[in-house]
């Protein structure tokens, strides 16, 4: 009798374990969907704060997960550029003709008064290299079923000690992210929507970022146009292009 019950239990458990998805698999699928070989984005950054609404248009070029050049095209910031490489962030202000290398605590500065810091742009490693991940369950975000994955830093050097991501179960794109300090204080909240499929990738065309340390402030990113896996010259991601 015992053997029969045992055999039945094993039979029931094997398919269940085959169907279950681990937190690691979810993150791998997320990164497979979100990381592109190359991309060119034409977008708008909209800062909502107590001064009102400020719109800054930009064009960004990206190569892989860790290389990016952003060039602002709106009149007020025309020619301002940010270069992010695997281990460096540089800024170029055309008015001052000044090249600034962002290092150390300066990375915590806000990008042009937005809710995004330069630190938010750093990275270079995959999430699984930097964080221990754990599947906390499933929840719905704006009607979309999502995996709730918590992440805790494996070592020092990551901008946020803890993160919780709500990852769309079907599209493998994050719908919401909470980023916390080591003490557990919520520092940033990101909400994504308007998901569209481009060249086989699911892309959120609208993102809202809130720095909880700032009162009455939020920053929206809107993608007007995106081209994926297009040929991009390596020289785009250099100090030469940045200071041009």
């Amino acid at each position: 009798m015992k053997r029969t019950v045992m055999a039945l239990l094993v039979t029931l458990m094997v398919p269940a374990s085959l169907w279950a998805i681990s937190a690691e698999d979810i993150i791998k699928k997320l990164e497979k969907n979100t990381v592109t070989k190359t991309a060119r984005i034409d977008g708008v950054m909209i800062i909502n704060d107590r001064f009102g609404i400020k719109r800054s248009t930009f064009i960004s070029y990206a190569r892989g997960a860790d290389t990016m050049l952003i060039e602002f095209t709106s009149v007020e910031e025309e020619g301002m550029k940010i270069l992010r490489t695997r281990d460096e962030i540089y800024l170029f202000y055309p008015d001052a003709e000044e090249l600034i290398r962002m290092q150390g605590a300066a990375l915590k500065e806000s990008v042009m008064g937005s809710d995004m810091s330069y630190e938010d742009m750093t990275g270079g490693r995959t999430l699984l290299q930097s964080y221990k991940v754990k599947l906390e369950g499933t929840e719905e975000i704006d009607g979309a079923p999502c995996y709730k994955v918590s992440m805790e830093a494996k070592k020092k050097g990551v901008p946020y000690y803890k993160q919780i991501m709500w990852i769309d179960k079907e599209l493998f794109i994050y719908r919401k992210i909470h980023k916390f300090s080591r003490s557990g204080k919520l520092l940033k909240e990101i909400i994504c929507d308007d998901v569209r499929q481009v060249s086989g990738k699911n892309i959120a065309f609208h993102m809202v970022l809130k720095d909880t340390m700032k009162r009455n402030s939020s920053t929206e990113f809107v993608i007007n146009d995106i081209q994926i896996n297009i040929p991009l010259k390596a020289s785009i991601f250099s100090l030469e292009e940045l200071t041009w």
Binding site: A105, K108, E109, D211
Partner: peptide
């Protein structure tokens, strides 16, 4: 030498 220290409430 240069250092930027973030403080509470968004001050630096």
């Amino acid at each position: 030498l240069f250092h930027l220290q973030s403080l509470a409430s968004g001050m630096s």
